[in-house]
Write a protein that binds this DNA or RNA. Structure first.
Length: 184
DNA sequence: AAAATAACCAACCGCCGACAC
DNA sequence: CGTGTCGGCGGTTGGTTATTT
């Protein structure tokens, strides 16, 4: 506390990125809090994780969102509300932070959704139905329920595993998400 | 051309659940 | 079994860039 916290804040430098990359190449992901201790990097574990997840990970796609991605996000948001990690898990190459930013800065505007009334986006009168589920398609055209998890290198991606035999991927999505945080 | 404003993006913060000790 | 630590999530903020006046 006193004496300040030894962790650095703000934008990452190329050198810090390199140290983080090197560590992950050798030790793999996880154990984020060890990174600072073992590499001398002056970043807390959370910051390292965020940097990797949102920027350094090879599975992160950069650049503009395509029309298909926009559409997919809009549909998923209708179903899931602000469950950004769940939504991002269904949008290949996009992170929760990217999806969240994209939504807040562009899509919500595009749809005329006002900030501050979050539940506006998921009206109570709109049940999660099989109809909607059918409408969710990935840019590649495959149905949501058969979408494999992203992350080509086999990294575990969130808690959403489309269990074989599961009749409703949406159900899985929804409840696994709902279990994390109380749905207010 | 300069100043003001808007838009965008990266990163931080606080909270919560899972897990190890 | 209780406590502490860690990882993950969603909301929010701050800095930078683009656009408008």
């Amino acid at each position: 506390m006193k004496g300040g916290n030894e962790y650095k804040k703000g934008l990452w430098t190329a050198e810090e990125d390199r140290v983080l990359m090197d560590y992950i190449m050798v030790h793999g992901k996880g154990k984020w809090n060890r990174i600072a201790r073992e590499t001398g990097l002056k970043r807390c574990g959370k910051s390292c994780r965020l940097r990797w997840m949102n920027y350094l990970s090879p599975s992160v796609k950069r650049g503009d969102f395509s029309e298909e991605e926009d559409d997919l996000i809009i549909r998923l948001h209708k179903l899931l509300g602000n469950r950004w990690s769940l939504i991002a898990g269904r949008v290949p190459g996009r992170t929760d932070n990217q999806v969240k930013n994209h939504w807040n800065t562009r899509l919500s505007k595009k749809l005329g959704i006002k900030k501050g009334k979050s539940e506006e986006t998921r009206t109570n009168s709109e049940p999660i139905s099989g109809e909607l589920e059918k409408n969710i398609e990935t840019p590649s055209g495959s149905n949501l329920s058969e979408l494999p998890n992203k992350c080509p290198n086999g990294e575990k991606e969130g808690e959403i595993v489309t269990k074989e035999g599961s009749q409703s991927a949406i159900g899985e999505l929804f409840f696994s998400g709902a279990s994390r945080r109380s749905l207010s």
